[in-house]
């Protein structure tokens, strides 16, 4: 491994770490704006993270060290997935055939670790949250793999850099809609989950972290922000033809795309109510079908 690669990875990691917590701040600003409130500052999550990092933690009497190690490993997995993601004109630091599968399974590893940490406390709420998370993820993962397959068929490649460079072709709108739905589900946003809810029985992600506090909670929150940025980037790069633009234009399009997705999440959150749990699989199945149609269109395009 050359020094260049290591420096590149460190620079990328720093960028991800610093930028990720911005997104939840923007979403909250949008929500406040729609509701006519002033809302928390955009940098609120940074303050929260700094404060939590310095706090003492309270652990459940039942919890093993896995309660703390789980979130740490989940964060490493998410950061690893982030590093695999190409950044538009900057390309990817580590690209190889099949890296897209590693990315999906790193997200799965993060999910396993979060679910493990949730089960540590023995709380029924956390068990419920973990059960919902891993169950809905089955459909979300099927959708995500179908979306990847559409991009693979479109570009005849299985590495993210080449898959994400051109536009998604005829199925772009379908793919965008499907991926946006998965983004909402995987990041526990309305209409799947409500990050602001205070009723444990209706929560998914928040129910899993009820008993976490202090530095482990900071790690979990930062990991969630990383995941949100990762999905926004993936959606933007899948749809926009960043590979065909000049460096400046591509950077602009990338930033603009991520901002648009973030504002979109905020608007959805302001305008929609959350779904009943029975409806969640239905919506995810719809997202799966959207991606499946995108795949079929990519298939037809390739056959000509």
């Amino acid at each position: 491994m050359s020094l260049r690669l290591i420096l590149d990875l460190i620079a990328r990691l720093a960028l991800w770490l610093l930028l990720a917590p911005l997104l939840p701040g923007i979403i909250n600003k949008v929500k406040a704006w729609v509701a006519g409130r002033r809302g928390p500052p955009v940098l609120q999550l940074y303050y929260d993270l700094a404060r939590l990092w310095q706090k003492h933690a309270v652990l459940s009497t039942l919890a093993s060290p896995g309660f703390v190690i789980g979130p740490a490993v989940a964060w490493v997995a998410l950061a690893g997935a982030a590093l695999l993601m190409p950044l538009g004109p900057a390309g990817s630091a580590l690209s190889f055939r099949g890296d897209m599968l590693l990315l999906i399974y790193l997200l799965a590893l993060a999910r396993f670790c979060t679910a493990w940490a949730a089960m540590e406390t023995g709380s029924a709420f956390e068990g419920m949250g973990a059960a919902r998370e891993v169950s809905f993820a089955v459909l979300a993962e099927a959708t995500l793999i179908t979306a990847l397959l559409a991009l693979c068929v479109q570009t005849e490649s299985t590495s993210l850099v080449t898959m994400l460079a051109p536009a998604a072709g005829a199925g772009a709108v379908l793919l965008a809609a499907g991926l946006f739905t998965v983004l909402l589900a995987e990041n526990c946003r309305v209409p799947f989950d409500d990050p602001n809810t205070h009723l444990e029985l209706t929560m998914i992600h928040e129910a899993m972290v009820l008993d976490h506090s202090g530095p482990p909670l900071a790690v979990i929150l930062h990991g969630a922000a990383l995941k949100l940025l990762l999905f926004s980037l993936f959606l933007t790069e899948a749809v926009l033809p960043l590979g065909q633009l000049s460096t400046l234009a591509a950077t602009g399009a990338l930033v603009g795309g991520v901002l648009a997705v973030t504002v979109g999440v905020g608007l959805v959150e302001s305008l929609l109510a959350r779904l009943a749990f029975r409806r969640v699989p239905l919506l995810l199945t719809t997202a799966f079908l959207l991606c499946l149609f995108a795949l079929l269109m990519a298939w037809k395009g390739g056959a000509e």
Binding site: H56, A57, V58, L59, S60, T61, L62, P65, V68, I69, P71, A72, V73, W75, V76, T121, G122, S123, A124, F125, E200, L210, D211, G214, P215, P216, V219
Partner: peptide, 23 residues
């Protein structure tokens, strides 16, 4: 590394044990 480090950080700072919060 991350797991060990976070666990050590907690141990150094000292943490409290309390009952699981579950209503």
């Amino acid at each position: 590394l991350a797991g060990v480090w976070l666990w050590r950080k907690l141990q150094r700072a000292g943490f409290k044990r309390a009952l699981t919060w579950d209503c």
